[in-house]
Design a protein around this nucleic acid. Structure first.
Lengths: 241, 241
DNA sequence: TCGACACTCGCACATTGTGCGATAAATCGA
DNA sequence: TCGATTTATCGCACAATGTGCGAGTGTCGA
């Protein structure tokens, strides 16, 4: 018996697209509709039936254009990365370009909070994600990185942005679910932490100090701090060679 | 009519535990069983019925000890953080302690890959997560950071670790699903990227250079690079004051 | 005109989280 | 010691989900 032809990765990007003549439904259309539902009502609102009715089509019609729901989600995730505005290391310096990248990704993710779950689930290997990586690599190449160092700089940059932004998104969606504003929520958290102050002395001290400040702004500063901190580290590494 | 007493956050950690006298089932037991299923077969294998039968109990019995599935997942996620080995800034220096933290978290997440999805979904505010944050804060306090800077250093550190590790996990699970070994998969990816080399010139160049190397090792080096890079940035920030 | 193909859709199935109410068992007040 | 309350377990049922299957409709090339 013959072995099946192996698919290198079970992903939309490795399956070939269906041929098309005159579809009343199209991938682009489906993806757009899916994003609209996701943006408006979040991940748990997106079902194939729901998507179908939104498109004025039967639920199972979608399966002609997309192998399964996971594939659809891969497409949708990659679409998020397309929204990152371009950043050019040629005109501005590499530091500005890298910063623009960081802020761009951060903003795109915030604009589509549901993307946080997807990033933890599936690798981002769509064309838009790759175009983004490529731009970042060009940026660091311009800065003077070569070989391994170039790879490392780029992926560390990406790591920092994701690592900061994903938990923030998780936190935001938790507050939204609770129906409270953030200020009260932080107050409540502070109460909890200070009540158990023996367990987390340092944490309790920090919390009580910042409970009254604007959390959103605080996190923005935080993001910028870490970013420049990391860029400084990179720059130092460049010079010492 | 009276308003309900508001719960500050809809989370296990804000609901009070059920009183208990002589339960044949306990939270700890449930959480342990859930983790065993998750570790063995991943997220999609965990259903309440499955968990019930594993515990030799009815599916709905679990709902006495845990409000709903999300709550259970919060408990389970926090349990992951408990596996991070302790790191002491007193005995070793702050840099070593911070590194130990980073490697510890990374390893704990790798040991339970399903945690990646959860981190994107729910804030990590369980006792173990907090104890961890507290340790990290003490570490940076020892280093000499104070006030805002302390906060920033700690959360940036955490961000870096998560940002690096989560995509790695996503990638690993994708390869596992495909049933291929990683080497072949990277080769296949390289093919795809080089075929579209005009779109991503820099990326294609990198890919083809590293396709033959051990990816696991490559990522380990990568992680260490970013880590020291970031610690250098922090140290510089300390000295210039 | 005829078959091949592109596409749509209704039906059906297994599986899911969980509300509800019936139970039993333990505990407590009298 | 006896009823009443609380603690805990469980079966049943419901609505919703992803998706396989096969029957339908349209279009195009020969």
């Amino acid at each position: 018996m013959l072995r099946d032809v192996e698919q290198p990765l079970s992903s939309v990007w490795t399956r070939e697209k269906r041929p098309s003549k005159s579809p009343t439904l199209s991938r682009a259309q489906i993806v757009r509709a899916a994003m609209e539902i996701l943006d408006a009502e979040g991940m748990e609102a997106l079902s194939m039936r729901r998507l179908g009715t939104k498109l004025g089509a039967g639920a199972t019609s979608i399966y002609w254009h997309v192998a399964n729901k996971d594939d659809l989600l891969e497409l949708v995730l990659d679409e998020v990365f397309s929204e990152v505005p371009p950043f050019d290391p040629e005109t501005s310096g590499w530091r500005d370009a890298a910063s623009a990248f960081a802020y761009g990704v951060r903003q795109a993710l915030f604009a589509h909070p549901w993307s946080a779950v997807l990033i933890g689930t599936m690798p981002s290997i769509g064309p838009n994600a790759m175009r983004l990586s490529d731009g970042l690599m060009r940026t660091f190449a311009k800065a003077g990185f070569t070989g391994m160092g170039l790879d490392h700089a780029a992926s560390t940059m990406m790591a920092y942005v994701l690592g900061t932004t994903l938990p923030e998104i998780a936190w935001r969606s938790a507050t939204r679910r609770s129906g409270l504003n953030e200020q009260d929520l932080v107050k409540a958290m502070t109460d909890i932490v200070t009540r158990a102050a023996n367990d987390y002395p340092e944490l309790a001290a920090r919390y009580s100090e910042y409970a009254d400040l604007d959390q959103q702004a605080l996190r923005a500063v935080n993001f910028d701090f870490g970013l420049t901190c990391f860029l400084d580290g990179l720059e130092a590494r460049l010079k010492q060679r």
